[in-house]
Nucleic acid binder design. Sequence first.
DNA 1: TCAGACATGTAAGTCGTTACATGATTCA
DNA 2: TGAATCATGTAACGACTTACATGTCTGA
Lengths: 197, 197
Amino acid sequence: MAKPKKTWFAILGLLSWRPMSGYEIKKFVENALSFFWSESYGQVYPTLKALVDAGLAKKLPRDGLGSRRQRYSITERGKRELAKWLSSPSEPPKSRNEFELKFFLNSSRPQKHNLKLVEEYRSQQQELLKDFLESEKLLKIAVRNDALPEELLESMPEIGDSDNQQLTVFYLTLRHGIHAARARIAWCNEVLSFLQS
Amino acid sequence: MAKPKKTWFAILGLLSWRPMSGYEIKKFVENALSFFWSESYGQVYPTLKALVDAGLAKKLPRDGLGSRRQRYSITERGKRELAKWLSSPSEPPKSRNEFELKFFLNSSRPQKHNLKLVEEYRSQQQELLKDFLESEKLLKIAVRNDALPEELLESMPEIGDSDNQQLTVFYLTLRHGIHAARARIAWCNEVLSFLQS
DNA sequence: TCAGACATGTAAGTCGTTACATGATTCA
DNA sequence: TGAATCATGTAACGACTTACATGTCTGA
């Protein structure tokens, strides 16, 4: 393994939670991790194949008769490689934030445009925060009671059989998103009052 | 122009500040915008050529004799296209945050690992915040006095001849970074006390 | 029965980085 | 004079998305 590929470990890491199929992996990332991760089908299926070839994952027999799903599980070697990667330092993210770029480049134009831009951004972030807080409420209950509320299962069926430690990490990761969204909203308010003064 | 290409407008936007060479553009992004944008030489030079071909930018004559720099300036058409793009809504960033992924995937391992991971992340963010605050202090003075402090010019020579409105936007963009870094540090503290309780 | 979700996969293309090639200039 | 930086550029590669192809199953 020359350079560790993030997609490899993202998928391997999900398999370390429990065996999953390509479709499940895609949906899980999309529904539950979208605020800090993304994968496309064009990545997921080839990567699963590559993980098997590298001996880090293996195909599980398709259970039942009508089952169309091809599930994969992590191997012992896979676990070791994953553990190694999880302990390695993360490179600081090279973010490319379109909004910030636009805001920055707008300097030579009337400030009215920037105000509109910031207001749009703020309502985007407020929407996001609302969703986060809803999930947070339910996850908090889940962690406390070690049981998943009906509502949570409806909005995120993929976290179905998670244990308490997984739910806790989920909750804490969500807190990261909440802090970030709040910070962005606070910035918007600051900028709006600055520009209007 | 089928799908608006971000790199095109990033570069065009910088040219709207003032004429620049490829090298200057790269350095500017690297030194001043790195916390929300990045470009590589492999993008910058071909894009400049493409912008000229599309009539959005034009080559300036190399001034003087020994000048090796090839500067480019934005054209009227370029300004119009840029303005259009700047007014268009930004798609929410598809971030892929390696740290958050690791934190999330670490759930099945001893929490000691996560503590270490979070502490590392926190000191990374604290370093970042320190730099931001230093720049902020200098930029604040610059905006107030409409003059660049010596120190600022040393650490960021590329903002050399910016006008007051540009400095203001710069300052406000930096505030975004400060809010974000503080939020991440606050999250770290929250998580550390949660995991240690 | 048929629309919509489930499910797997591939091909082509876009976007971006890295590494390399080349040479001028500056300054210790 | 030779190391570092300035400066422009390209080729090869890698990561990721989009669009497409194909077919199954479920439930109104």
